[in-house]
Structure formats: structure tokens, C-alpha cells
């Protein structure tokens, strides 16, 4: 019997953690109890910035984190899931998987740390939630918006001031008008943490969409120590995770949208028209690409090519994508009532 230690930091209600649990349950069941997981959820063992360094050092065997956000020097290329590329979460799951399988630079990012990447799952679509509607980038001009990482570049490009702040502080600050709006708010987290109650508008900000992924990985040495039979079980279940995600994500968005509606929020939802989205694309697309090239430059000259390859893969999967963004789900649900 092999015991593997798991550490995560994302809330237990999130879809990423739900799937970690599903994965571990399935592996335990299908291995007939030959593999057991000792589980530490919600940062109980390690805080977000320590998850990947700890996994690399073998402090745990299996972990889910966002290394590209918290350890950007070690994982710059994984930052390829940038805002204003797509709204389709399922397209991103498959596109990231294919990109990883075909790109040696991206593989090296993990293998050089002694980490075996298993899957990457998008956080649900973001938007800008606040006291004013965001239809065009200029609407952010002069506004104080809680934003970090790539979305902060977008806010700056629109003339706004990005303010880095914790999620909880930001909800409080928006509620009391110390901030005009907050971004980096996955739809389900926003609803579950009461953001609709403190804002007048929720805008998709020109289909800002998917802007980050959580990444689950095994420590390579821990994996190598497993028997062939054990490895087979792990790989079998891991291969099913993306499909499972796609099955669950729409239901999860519907549930959040229902909660949004039930709480009787007065929030007005702004969805971009095709023309508006195209204009955002014009401004943000080249900006994100050039920023990505800059980030990637510490490890490779091919940043632009990787970015383009990822976008191309996303476009390949978009037509068959079934994901409906959270804000759009809410609008449909509201119209139905």
C-alpha cells in the first residue's frame, strides 16, 4: 500500500478541488486501496506560494496550485492562459493539454522542477464587478479597480488604476466605495463570496473570459516510485479529468447563477456585443501577446510562437465547446423567470 500526500489551497467548493477529490477517490477505489491519499485542503499544509516549491522538494506528492501566478520566475510559460483570448473553459482545458503535449519548452518548465504535470483546469470566467458598467476599455479610465497580473495590464491599458488587494478586502472596499470595481473574480467565487450584493454592475469586459488555470501535478520522484500497476491507475483516472471537468462546469455555473438570482441581486449584467468584443480584442490581444513574449523571454525566444499556438488550439476547440460563461448563464436564467 502506498500513501500519497495531497495539498491544495483553493476553496473546497471550487470545481478544481472537487475534481481533485474525485480523482483521489477514483484512484483509491480503482487501485483497490493500494494507493491511499492523505489530504490537506484549503492551505491547511501549505499556503498558495509554497505549493509548487513544496511539491518540487517532495514535501508532498500531489498538489494543485497556480504556479504561474505565485512562482512566475519558475513557471513563466504556463501563464499562456491570458484574458481576452476565449470565454470557453472547455476549449482551454483541451488546448492547454495539447499545447503541453506538443511543446518541449512548456514540458521542461515542469520537468526541470522535478514535477509531473497532470492537468490544468480553467478558473470560471472573470469579469469586472463594480459601481459602473464596463462596455469599452475607455470606461475604466480613472477608475480604481482591484486587479492583479494580466488583467491589471488590461486595466492600465484602459486608463484605470489597478489596485492589488486580497479578494476579501476588495469585496469590503467595493462595498464601501473605497474601490470602484474588482476584477480577477471567477464567476462562482464572486457569487459565493457575496460580490453581487455590493456592486451595481457585472460586466464581461469585452469577453475577458478565461484568464487563469489551476494546475495539478505529481512529484516526479513520487510517481517514479509507484509500481507499473499503480501508475496505470493514476494515468487512467487523470486522463478522465478534463472530460469530467466539462461535464461538471456548466452545472456548477448554473448553480452559481441560480444563487445569484435567488439572492435577488439588483446587479445589472453587461454582456459585450460582437462589435464591442472585437474592439477589445484589437486593444488587448496584441498587449497580452507582447507581455507574454516579455515574460517568456527569460527562458525562451519562442514566446510569440507559443502564444499563437495556444490561441490556434483554442480556436480549434471553440466550435465544439459547450461551456456557457457564468454571466451569460445568469442572463439566460433571469430571462427565463
Amino acid at each position: 500500500e502506498t500513501k500519497l500526500v495531497y495539498a491544495g489551497y483553493i476553496s473546497e467548493r471550487s470545481i478544481a478541488t472537487t475534481l481533485d477529490t474525485w480523482f483521489m477517490d477514483q484512484v483509491e477505489a480503482r487501485s483497490g486501496g493500494d494507493i491511499k491519499f492523505e489530504r490537506y485542503y484549503g492551505g491547511a499544509l501549505m499556503k498558495a506560494p509554497d505549493i509548487y516549491p513544496g511539491l518540487a522538494q517532495g514535501a508532498v506528492d500531489f498538489a494543485t496550485g497556480t504556479p504561474q501566478a505565485y512562482n512566475p520566475k519558475d513557471y513563466p510559460l504556463s501563464n499562456v492562459v491570458l484574458p481576452w483570448i476565449t470565454e470557453k473553459a472547455d476549449a482551454v482545458v483541451y488546448a492547454f493539454r495539447d499545447l503541453y503535449e506538443g511543446n518541449a519548452d512548456l514540458q521542461k518548465e515542469f520537468s526541470s522542477q522535478g514535477v509531473k504535470m497532470m492537468w490544468a483546469l480553467p478558473f470560471p470566467d472573470g469579469g469586472i464587478w463594480g459601481s459602473f458598467p464596463v462596455r469599452m476599455p475607455e470606461d475604466m479610465n480613472g477608475k480604481r479597480i482591484r486587479a492583479v497580473a494580466a488583467i491589471a495590464w488590461g486595466v492600465e491599458a484602459g486608463g484605470g488604476s489597478p489596485v492589488p488587494m486580497s479578494f476579501a478586502d476588495a469585496v469590503e472596499a467595493v462595498n464601501r466605495n473605497a474601490l470602484d470595481a474588482m476584477a480577477n473574480t471567477p464567476f462562482d467565487s464572486a457569487v459565493n463570496n457575496g460580490v453581487p450584493k455590493v456592486v451595481a454592475y457585472a460586466s464581461d469586459a469585452g469577453r475577458l473570459g478565461i484568464n487563469s488555470v489551476s494546475i495539478a501535478s505529481l512529484n516526479q520522484a513520487s510517481y517514479d516510485r509507484l509500481s507499473d500497476a499503480q501508475k496505470a491507475v493514476i494515468n487512467e483516472v487523470a486522463a478522465e479529468v478534463p472530460g469530467r471537468y466539462v461535464e461538471l462546469i456548466n452545472a456548477s455555473m448554473s448553480k452559481a447563477a441560480e444563487r445569484f438570482l435567488e439572492e435577488g441581486a439588483e446587479t445589472e449584467v453587461i454582456l459585450a456585443t460582437d462589435e464591442e468584443a472585437a474592439k477589445w480584442q484589437e486593444v488587448m490581444g496584441p498587449l497580452m501577446r507582447s507581455k507574454y513574449i516579455e515574460m517568456a523571454s527569460s527562458v525562451t525566444e519562442n514566446g510569440g510562437a507559443i502564444y499563437d499556438q495556444f490561441v490556434e488550439l483554442v480556436r480549434k476547440y471553440e466550435p465544439e465547446a459547450v461551456y456557457t460563461p457564468g454571466l451569460a448563464t445568469y442572463v439566460k436564467l433571469k430571462a427565463g423567470h
Binding site: 506560494p49 501566478a69 505565485y70 512566475p72 520566475k73 519558475d74 486587479a147 492583479v148 497580473a149 491589471a152 489597478p162 492589488p164
Partner: peptide, 11 residues
């Protein structure tokens, strides 16, 4: 040695 950084809005 690694030059550890954080990344909020700026590095």
C-alpha cells in the same frame, strides 16, 4: 540564487 519574485501588478 534563484532571485525569487512575487508578481501582484508589478514584479
Amino acid at each position: 540564487q534563484k532571485g525569487e519574485m512575487s508578481f501582484g501588478v508589478h514584479p
